[in-house]
Design a protein around this nucleic acid. Structure first.
Length: 497
RNA sequence: GGGGCUGUACGCUAACCUGGCAGACUUCCAGCCUCGGGCGCUGGAUACCCGAGUUCAAAUCUCGGCAGCCCCA
């Protein structure tokens, strides 16, 4: 559990409330780690009190948000020609170990089942840390000729990796609960290459719709996925300035095809290897979304995935309970006709309690409704993004609330764009970077000639690891390592999660 | 990969240094009071992370495990 002893913390707490109740008021930028843990707790997303490192309990409210987010992902996958499947979680060692680099990359963090009941197993079973091997082995008989290609599959499953780094809910886990992994099979290298661009486009659409800011980069050759030819990473930046890999789109070439004997008969009746790609996302995207949009009062749910769009808080006076309740039900009915998810909070608690609670959970709109409003035919509407209240005619509620969903989305987008812009910095030389990048927050770009030696040298000189580069975007500057000017591109560096 | 810190009730915390009845607030339960930004009152429930060691005696000291946080690479 977080330790709350910093002076800032004590100050913000006492300022926010005179009661000793734990108030959610944490400076997200100054104290992101603590903000994140507390916001997910008070915001009803995760219960972190599970005694196994890297595994967390999803609360219903949080899980609903995840489900909404994943349904957007499924919609995009389905629309772009991917078919949803399922492959087993336990993978025999003989299959898991078929591709050397992959085995080397994942062996250290795979959970391995060696015993069942009282018997030890004759062959070890690997719990999937990702499903390349089991899928590639299994689809072999599905692919016989070019007419079977391209084959584009995806599954949404849980997967396990024995992370040794510090774990964090949603961002770094040992048990990933909703791993959406896509695997595609193509006749030619060109087609696989095209699929990479399609995969990046699909993910870009997803992140655009989730209002998660990102840049698309190519990972340097010395830092690619185990068994990959190259990969494209989609990177974001968290409020503490650390970079977060949102997704990786990987071109596997025919390396796995060769290891698994994945071939088809081409037009000349010649056996050819398929070319493959794979790409995945997970609940990490929800963590990123919540992290970038929340404020010092807690979470702010993006309207498109909010488990509850509107919470109605009835304000009772003695004797008015029934009338207020009826009015609340009436408003709820009107809003639900607009496909809004609405909840009435008539729990016997003070309204202040309720307000703080729903704000921490990030419900986009709150409606306050008491005798005063009923008499005037009005409603008080509070929006979570700006914390502003307005009074409207009750009959205008459906129209106004729907409009507010768009307005809130727009505000969040503007805010997050501005935030992201301030966290991507560009420098021309190492000296300039060292002089100005003192807080080491966010991604930094430096001119780079494309040579691995120079990339590694820069990494070492500035003491920040490479994140990736944008291959097709040439810049007019000299490589910050060797000074060459031809073909200079920008390499991004950043501390990562 | 290396280093540091921490673990007391649902939550937050006191006692730990200097071993000797674990205390407050919050929460929860029962009841009263009633709801426009964390009401009040009465009564009650709930805790020393796990294991070993030292000791007459361990929340406190030592060792190990598990879990969490921070810093550096």
């Amino acid at each position: 559990m977080p330790n709350l002893k910093s002076p800032n913390e004590a100050l913000s707490r006492s300022e926010a409330s005179t009661s000793t109740k734990v108030t959610f008021s944490i400076d997200k930028i100054k104290n992101f780690s603590e903000w994140y843990d507390r916001a997910l707790d008070v915001g009803d997303i995760i219960d972190a009190r599970y005694p196994v490192k890297g595994m967390y309990i999803w609360r219903p409210y949080g899980f609903r948000a995840l489900r909404e987010m994943m349904s957007v992902m499924r919609e995009i996958m389905d629309r772009t020609g991917h078919k949803e499947t399922y492959f087993p979680m336990l993978i025999p060692e003989s299959i898991f170990g078929k591709e050397r680099d992959f085995l080397k990359g994942f062996k250290g963090e795979a959970y391995i089942v060696t015993q069942a009941g009282n018997d030890s197993l004759t062959e070890k079973l690997y719990v999937r840390p990702t499903s390349e091997t089991v899928i590639y082995e299994s689809v072999k008989p599905w692919i016989r000729s070019e007419t079977d290609l391209p084959l584009k599959l995806y599954q949404v499953v849980n997967m396990y990796r024995h992370e040794t780094k510090q774990t964090r809910p949603m961002l770094r886990l040992r048990e990933v609960v909703e791993f959406k992994e896509a695997h595609t099979f193509h006749a030619t290298a060109e087609e696989a290459d095209r699929q990479i661009r399609e995969g990046v486009a699909a993910y870009s659409e997803f992140f655009d719709r989730m209002l998660i800011p990102y840049i698309v980069v190519r990972t340097p050759s010395w830092d690619t996925f185990a068994g990959a030819v190259y990969n494209i990473d989609i990177m974001s930046v968290m409020p503490d300035g650390k970079a977060l890999e949102l997704a990786s789109v990987i071109n596997l070439g025919d390396k796995f095809a060769k290891a698994f004997g994945l071939t088809y008969r081409n037009k000349n009746n010649k056996e050819s290897y398929v070319h493959q790609t794979c790409y995945g996302i997970s609940e990490r995207e929800l963590g990123a979304m919540l992290a970038v949009h929340g404020d010092n009062r807690g979470l702010i749910m993006l309207p498109s995935i909010a488990p509850i769009h509107v919470v109605i808080v009835p304000i009772f006076k003695r004797g008015s309970e029934d009338a207020v309740k009826r009015a609340a039900e009436n408003v709820k009915g009107m809003l639900e006709k607009q496909k809004l998810r609405v909840e009435i909070d008539d729990k016997p608690k003070g309204v202040g309690d309720k307000f703080y609670e729903w704000e921490a959970k990030g419900v986009p709109v709150r409606i306050e409704l008491g005798l005063k409003e009923i008499e005037r035919g009005e409603l008080v509407i509070f929006r979570r993004d700006t914390l502003k209240k307005e009074t409207i005619k009750a009959k205008d509620a459906p129209k106004r609330v729907l409009a507010l969903m768009d307005e809130i989305t727009k505000t969040l987008k503007e805010r997050v764009d501005e935030y992201f812009k301030s966290r991507i910095l560009h420098f021309l030389t190492v000296g300039e970077l060292k002089k100005h990048y003192t807080e080491r927050k966010g991604l930094v770009g430096l001119p780079w000639c494309g040579d691995e030696k120079c990339g590694r040298k820069l990494e070492e000189e500035i003491g920040i690891p490479t994140v990736g580069f944008v291959p097709e975007k040439h810049i007019d500057a000299a490589c910050a390592a060797c000074g060459r000017r031809d073909n200079t591109i920008e390499m991004y560096f950043g501390r990562t999660y």
